[in-house]
């Protein structure tokens, strides 16, 4: 897929991040196509999460620049990046345990009047906005099947439910691009299917999705575009079928076990 022909929402050039002597990320060029689901794959330690952190402003690169929607966002603070419409989730789910599920959701929308110090004490200034946000939160919770948990503390949810809540909360920001860091990790197979459905529905809603995943079946199933990283570099990108047939990818990432089911492979790894 030649980059010139696609409409890219995110374009990055020359991003490099080193930790001491270790080069964690060294990406020459990267583009994320708009309105598509892009999977970022690669073996452990390939630098996927570090790249996520850099792109979203949670870490600072040693070099490099990138634009989002044509706007330069390199080195911008994380909260500014999020406000521009690029919202991420975390590999280790970050729900706010001692807030209820509904409160977690209400935290999402930007530009809330009640979040400003001087208008916060006066409820009449922000009540209308809050009610509208609550309504939207309830709709999303219903979509993610969390509506029954609305008044529970987020800390009492299961791991999979937390993943759902985090994704739903990110949507409350009304992002243009959602970045999901291993959304399926530690989620049971039944819930995985519904999460997959949710990720697909994000694309239908006109959002761009970038997600990190290990499960190749899943990547093959839902992604339009795949970026493969190994040892900090992008070694291949293209459609799932192209990438999976690429010999470099097979060598670097899939290894000799790429035909076996990944769960079996994990099981053998654990026993060894």
């Amino acid at each position: 897929m030649p980059a010139e022909q696609t409409d890219s929402i995110l374009v990055a050039d020359g991003i490099r991040r080193t930790f001491g002597g270790l080069t964690a990320v060294d990406v020459d060029h990267l583009e994320i196509p708009r309105h598509k689901i892009t999977a970022l794959i690669g073996p452990n330690g390939a630098g996927k999460t570090t790249l996520f952190n850099l792109l979203t402003g949670f870490d600072e690169p040693d070099a490099g620049s990138w634009t989002f929607n044509g706007q330069d966002v390199s080195g911008k603070a994380a909260y500014k990046v999020a406000r521009l419409g690029m919202v991420r989730t975390f590999q280790l789910t970050k729900v706010l345990s001692k807030l209820t599920v509904l409160e977690n959701m209400r935290l999402g929308p930007t530009g809330q009047r009640g979040e400003r110090f001087w208008s916060a004490p006066f409820q009449f200034l922000w009540r209308g906005q809050e009610d509208a946000n609550t309504e939207r939160a309830r709709e999303l919770l219903a979509r993610f099947k969390l509506d029954a948990k609305e008044q529970d503390y987020a800390g009492s949810l299961s791991g999979g439910q937390r993943k759902l809540l985090e994704m739903a909360r990110a949507l409350m920001v009304e992002p243009e691009m959602v970045m999901l860091d291993e959304p399926m990790a530690g989620v049971n197979p039944a819930l995985k299917q519904s999460l997959l459905g949710h990720v697909k529905s994000l694309r239908e809603d006109g959002m761009t999705v970038l997600f990190v995943e290990h499960d190749m079946d899943m990547v093959r199933d839902i992604s339009d575009h795949v970026i493969v990283m190994a040892q900090g570099k992008v070694i291949a990108q293209g459609t799932p079928a192209d990438v999976m047939g690429d010999q470099r990818v097979i060598d670097a990432y899939l290894g000799e076990h790429h035909d076996t089911d990944i769960t079996q492979e994990r099981a053998t790894e654990e026993t060894s």
């Binding site: 994380a78 909260y79 999020a82 991420r88 970050k94 729900v95 999402g108 979040e115 985090e166």
Partner: peptide, 9 residues
């Protein structure tokens, strides 16, 4: 970090 990721300063 979760709050930061939602666009709050």
């Amino acid at each position: 970090d979760a709050v930061r990721s939602l666009g709050k300063n």
